[in-house]
C-alpha cells in the first residue's frame, strides 16, 4: 500500500498564505501595478475626463480663460435648439447617414460580390477601390474641390460646353451638399467593401455548391444563400457607417468649410466653427454633449437590436 496515512505536519488552514500574499510573491501584483496604470492614466486623462468636463462646462458661458464662473444653466442648449445652422447640420448628418446606408453600402456590397474571389485581377480592383479609404480626408477634400472648381475642373468644362456662366457647385446652396455626399461615398465605400469581401470569403464553398446542385441560379444563390449569411457583416458595416457619419469633419473643411451660408455643416464642423474657433467653451461643450448622447444612444440601441439579432 502506497497511500500515505494522514500526517499533517501543518494544518491546512494556518499554513495557507492569503491570496494577496501569493499574488505578491509570484509577481502578479507587481505586473498589474506596472502594466495597467499607463493605459488607465492615458485613457482617463484624455478621454474620460474631457467628456465629464464637457458635461460640466456645458452649463457655463466661458471663454476658456480663468475659471468658469458665469453659470447659465441650460442656456447653451436653448441657443442650440434655436440655431437654424445647427438644425441644418443635424439634417446634413442625417443625409450623410442615409447616403452611407442607401448608396454606399449597396455599392460596396455589389463590388464585393463582383470581386470577392481570389484572382489576380480582383486583387488589383480591390486595391484600387480601397485606396480612397487610406487617403487623408483633407487631401481627398482638396482633390475634389479642384475637380469641382468652377474655373478649372469638371464643372468648368460642363458650363463651357453649355455656354453658360462659370458654375461653382461647391458654392451653390443646392449642389454643395450633394457633392459632399458623393465624395463621402467615393471615399468610404472601399472600407465597407472590404468587410463584405472578408465575410463572403468566410462563406464555405460547399454551401454555395450545395445550392447549385439544388438547382439555384447565380442570382438566386446570391439572394437566398449569400446575402442572408452576410447579415452580421451588414450590421457591422451599418454601425461603422453611422458612427463615422456622426463624426464627419475633415472632409468638409477643404470642400466647403461649412458654406455657403452654413448650409453644409455637419455636427462636428458646426461644433468646431461655432464652439472652438470662437472659444465658446461652454457652448462647444454643449454641442459635444449632444453629439455624445446621440452616439451613445445609437450604439446602445443598435447593439441591443440589430447586432443582437444577427
Amino acid at each position: 500500500m502506497a497511500v500515505a496515512e494522514t500526517n499533517n505536519i501543518i494544518s491546512p488552514a494556518q499554513g495557507r498564505p492569503s491570496a494577496l500574499k501569493r499574488a505578491l510573491s509570484d509577481g502578479r501584483l507587481v505586473t498589474v501595478l506596472v502594466f495597467l496604470p499607463p493605459a488607465l492614466l492615458l485613457f482617463t486623462l484624455f478621454v474620460t475626463l474631457p467628456l465629464i468636463e464637457a458635461a460640466g462646462y456645458a452649463g457655463y458661458k466661458w471663454s476658456g480663460y480663468g475659471d468658469p464662473t458665469e453659470w447659465v444653466g441650460m442656456r447653451n442648449f436653448e441657443i442650440l435648439q434655436k440655431h437654424s445652422a445647427f438644425h441644418q447640420s443635424l439634417m446634413n448628418t442625417v443625409w450623410v447617414i442615409v447616403a452611407s446606408c442607401l448608396l454606399q453600402i449597396p455599392l460596396a456590397m455589389s463590388m464585393a460580390l463582383l470581386i470577392y474571389r481570389k484572382t489576380w485581377s480582383n486583387t488589383v480592383f480591390r486595391l484600387i477601390f480601397f485606396a480612397p479609404y487610406i487617403l487623408a480626408e483633407v487631401a481627398t477634400g482638396l482633390i475634389w474641390s479642384f475637380i469641382f472648381d468652377g474655373d478649372y475642373g469638371v464643372a468648368a468644362m460642363a458650363s463651357q460646353a453649355l455656354g453658360g456662366e462659370p458654375f461653382f457647385p461647391l458654392s451653390d446652396r443646392t449642389w454643395a451638399f450633394p457633392v459632399v455626399l458623393f465624395v463621402v461615398v467615393w471615399k468610404f465605400f472601399g472600407f465597407h467593401m472590404m468587410i463584405f469581401i472578408a465575410a463572403l470569403q468566410g462563406i464555405p464553398e460547399d454551401l454555395t455548391e450545395a445550392a447549385r446542385i439544388d438547382g439555384a441560379k447565380p442570382g438566386q444563390i446570391t439572394w437566398f444563400v449569400k446575402l442572408p449569411l452576410l447579415k452580421p457583416a451588414i450590421a457591422v458595416s451599418v454601425f461603422f457607417a453611422v458612427i463615422g457619419s456622426l463624426q464627419l469633419f475633415d472632409l468638409i473643411v477643404p470642400l466647403t468649410n461649412g458654406g455657403p451660408s452654413n448650409s453644409t455643416h455637419t455636427i462636428v464642423s458646426y461644433l468646431y466653427t461655432f464652439g472652438l474657433t470662437r472659444l465658446k467653451v461652454g457652448f462647444g461643450s454643449a454641442v459635444g454633449i449632444v453629439l455624445f448622447l446621440i452616439t451613445v444612444a445609437f450604439a446602445v440601441v443598435y447593439r441591443n437590436t440589430a447586432m443582437k439579432e444577427t
Binding site: 499533517n8 495557507r16 510573491s25 509570484d26
Partner: peptide, 19 residues
C-alpha cells in the same frame, strides 16, 4: 493550479505554495 487545502511535499520539502 492553486491548492485549495492540504500540503504537497517533494523530497520532504513543503512546496504547497512554492513557485
Amino acid at each position: 493550479e492553486e491548492v485549495t487545502s492540504g500540503q504537497i511535499t517533494i523530497g520532504g520539502e513543503d512546496v504547497t505554495d512554492a513557485d
